[in-house]
Amino acid sequence: MLGRIVLHLLVLLILSPLLPGVIAKTKALFAGRIGAPLLQPYYDLARLMRKEFIFSRTTTWVFLAGPVVGLVVPLLAAQLMPFGGLGASLSFRGDLVLFVYLFGLARFFTAASALDTGSSFEGMGAVREVTFSCLAEPTLLFALLVLACGADSLTLNDLLGPALAGRWHSGQAASLALIAVCLFVVVLVENSRIPFDDPNTHLELTMIHEVMVLDHSGPAFGLVLYGAAMKLLVLGALLVRLVLPLQTGHVLLDLLLLVAGLVGLAVLIGVVESTMARLRLPRVPQVLVGTTLLSAFALVLVLR
């Protein structure tokens, strides 16, 4: 188990900044630019760690709690999540609820640390974050219910276990495809990607996640970026495992498969970001309600 934990931590710590790099590269290629190097997020992190802090007069200790919780939560949640063929390092009945609620804790502190600055822009970001996430949460739970329906177990490890490949070939393939689509939307929302949020926009009024961390600086901002990348990896691993339920039994091959899947997901996100426009903000809740209903429909399909 200890080996598994170390392996999961290593994958998470080393690989996670690669994904934003891949997304940025894909977008650059679509725009006809060469773009920043793939490893740019690593350089950014290293640079931020060396920089000094600047704090607003208004802030308190809660301001720093946001990045800290935002980093610790993905590290813990990753232990519950099977990484491709590599099983979860910790697995127990009901860990899927803990998984969802851990990210809730991170959201609480990220939003609180945004409000700590007293800026109305950051307040806007915090509202949007908590609003959209609380609409995305039922979708996630519906998707987990669909997975749990045929799995006869309540651990993420078994829901996304070897039996999943067989379910794709049974009559449940349709609902699995549906929840894969819904989970992709959840990944996009939770990680603040286009079409729900534009991480590269220049107007604070329209941002969600980026505006919440506007006042962070130096190592704290580094932690924020690192935590966001890890969150993308952990949630992405869920989707990758759902779509690619292959298992070779060999650690290295499984790892390779996971990396390939994650890079594929990042490219897909990059393509979506390059080809779609950001949704108008009032439309986002409608889309999220739509995905919730879609996942509920997937549940109906699997139940009949």
């Binding site: 409608q286 739509g290 429909f297």
Partner: peptide, 20 residues
Amino acid sequence: FATTLFLGTLIAACAFLCAD
């Protein structure tokens, strides 16, 4: 729109559960 969508899902769920 959201309400229509909700009604649509309701219809779909009913159709699937009652078709048999």
